[in-house]
Design a protein around this nucleic acid. Structure first.
Lengths: 231, 231
DNA sequence: CGCGGCTTTGATGTTCATCAAGTAAAGTGG
DNA sequence: CCACTTTACTTGATGAACATCAAAGCCGCG
């Protein structure tokens, strides 16, 4: 059960994104009335594919994954979202139902902004609208590139890519605790659990990484990068 | 060489999309000054990955493909756009360069709207902004679903899907002329040219389709649908 | 005509998924 | 707290799906 918390107002929010900074104080105060913040534990579900969209979601803290269930009944990753990302983004302006699911892969804090009030602000503030458009465009570009990257790489390349992603983009550290099970990783990058394990072992034997439980340390990033590009 | 043509004003444009219909006459007249229409022949290139984005592109007529070149140096489809689609959509609000290429797979007419003027209109008209957001959101949903569909299907499933797409969504006819070479199809759906050919032959032998040069007729749609869902 | 690109088919090989089986770890109820 | 169940992890063997390679026919075009 996510715990509802109540922190600062929007106008004093530490996590106010670049985009929301463009709003006037009165606009922020307006939205303030229509937002709720919730705390989730690792593994908890935020939204399920098909659920009604009522709020605009903003990830303040933690790590979540967006995914869709394919006709093969497997989960397919759309993206892994980091703090400051708008996570209920993708169908929010066009559909009434979520077209994908979101679950937390780390403890997370998510801000729920009422959709209708947000739309009101957009209607009144064209610059804000442009910024939302821009952010949306960026997100989309990112997701698409990642997907195409995945499709053009073999299994080794995909694992390298994922490891480098966690080290460089998420944890900013060559040593980190994998927040996902092997099975989840498999879903993320379109392969089987067994092969995830096999290739991680392979990388360990080849001295590319060091594994200690769920902690992974990248010991030869150059080579990992080479594999991710060559694959 | 695309031929520049000059047709009606925006406000009387037959192809005015649902979205542009929400603009006031004066807004349309304003944009009118900043638009150019161009006629392309099948096979011609509209934009190349990396080119500067200066205009917002609107497909009035024809059929184009959006694709990105992967690290495997193969082309990967993003989508096939039909008339009334905004085709220069994906990075237009966030980047200065196109993140993908566009070429015509049929003779096409494309309307080029100056990006800065469009942004001006968006800034002034919040409802229009919301509509653009909505359209963008829809497009994105579509592209993502298609990609995930592709990833969760085997080769036979993908070919079925593509054939059904052309018959149902593009030509609205069970018999049509394939506008793409086998090689291009391969790029579209992440497989090799040889396998495209092999599976098409297979479908022909099994009586699912009838092939006459580049004309294809779907003779057993039920089964094709079954294959596309099962695969 | 002859060159290059598209198409087609067959033979071969690699990559990867599936199946099976066993160990370890983690949660569950008495 | 311990037996019990479940879930995660690991490794090997096997086979299917698919890519690659090779060769030949076809067609448009300078």
């Amino acid at each position: 059960m996510p715990e509802t918390i109540n922190t600062a107002t929007c106008s004093t929010c530490m996590f106010k994104s670049l985009i929301f900074q463009k709003l006037e104080k009165e606009e922020l105060d307006y939205m303030d009335q229509f937002k709720v913040e919730k705390k989730y534990k690792k593994g908890e579900i935020v939204v399920v594919e098909g659920a009604q969209i009522k709020e605009f979601l903003y990830l303040k803290n933690g790590l979540v994954k967006l995914f869709k269930t394919g006709i093969d009944l497997k989960d397919h990753i759309i993206s892994i979202a980091k703090p400051f990302d708008f996570i209920g983004f993708l169908s929010v302006f066009s559909k009434n139902q979520y077209q994908y699911s979101i679950t937390c892969i780390e403890d997370s804090v998510i801000c729920f902004v009422d959709m209708d009030s947000l739309k009101n602000v957009i209607k009144e503030n064209g610059k804000f609208a442009l910024d939302i458009l821009s952010k949306m465009s960026l997100t989309l570009d990112d997701i698409l590139s990642t997907r195409i990257d995945l499709c053009s790489r073999n299994l080794r390349g995909r694992i390298s890519l994922l490891l480098l992603f966690f080290a460089n983009d998420v944890y900013h550290n060559d040593s980190f605790k994998l927040p996902l099970t092997r099975k989840e990783i498999a879903g993320l990058i379109e392969m089987t659990t067994e092969n995830v394990i096999r290739i991680l072992s392979e990388f360990r034997k080849d001295g590319l990484i060091h594994i200690d439980g769920s902690t992974i340390q990248l010991t030869n990033k150059k080579l990992l990068e080479a594999i991710s590009t060559a694959g």
